[in-house]
Design a protein around this nucleic acid. Structure first.
Lengths: 124, 124
DNA sequence: CTTATATATGAGCATTTACTCATATATTCA
DNA sequence: TGAATATATGAGTAAATGCTCATATATAAG
């Protein structure tokens, strides 16, 4: 992942762009790789049409796997795999009642991010 | 993409989960495939560590391709490809000065989504 | 015009993703 | 206990992704 190449060295020697050394002026707290990966992980979880629909529906009400599959017009297995993915990220949680497993949103922050973004996108 | 299979038919016939027909009670405006794809597209654009860093830096100041490559410790080509991707989504815009091309954020909504999400993630 | 520099882009490739299929597990009911 | 149902999961696969490498384009300087 990390790469130190000819390109990096060449880069240092040549361009100063504005001539004011804009990179050096970048003094605000730099973002770390871990932070960037963590932020990207959350956005990535919301970055798929199937998961967008899932979260959209679950934001309205708790739903079992079967009903989600019906709403999404998808196979049970595919839905279950996606729910597993979202559960690993603590975005959804399970509630088991007999044979049935009900899913709901597990993170208020994610929910707010989702709803706020929906609001933003309506004005675009 | 659309699939009408044995699974879908079987599903209709059996489970009612709570027995109150929770799917039928889902009467709020359903999300369309196009809407879900559009929403997912935006989140997906923010769902990569490289692009997260890019947007983080560009949210602070306008930067040329070269300086971005230096900050990201990445090759010029990779950075240019990602900028192209973000530009196609109107998330960043170009400003050309001689040989140099400066990039900055192009969408106030995306910027707000990004910053608000960063705020949320700090409290998790 | 020629050379150097800044950026853009097409092709190729390894990895990741999102599904399907088959099957495992868990629970209810006869 | 055995059959039926609801969900979970591992393996396999086609498509998407994010990079590298080579090269094209655009501009400036000599």
């Amino acid at each position: 992942m990390e790469k130190i190449g000819i390109e990096a060295i060449k880069r240092e020697d040549t361009c100063t762009c504005t001539g004011i050394g804009s990179v050096e002026l970048m003094q605000e707290p730099q973002i770390t790789e871990e932070q960037a990966v963590g932020i990207a992980e959350v956005f990535k979880a919301l970055g798929d049409p199937t998961r967008v629909k899932m979260i959209y529906y679950l934001q309205q009400r708790e739903l079992c796997v079967h009903d989600l599959a019906t709403l999404l017009e998808m196979g049970q297995s595919a839905v279950s795999h996606q729910l597993r993915y979202l559960r690993d990220l603590h975005i959804v949680k399970r509630r088991k009642v007999g044979k049935t497993v009900f899913y709901s949103l597990d993170d208020e922050h994610i929910e707010q991010i989702f709803v706020q973004t929906l609001g933003h996108l309506q004005h675009m």
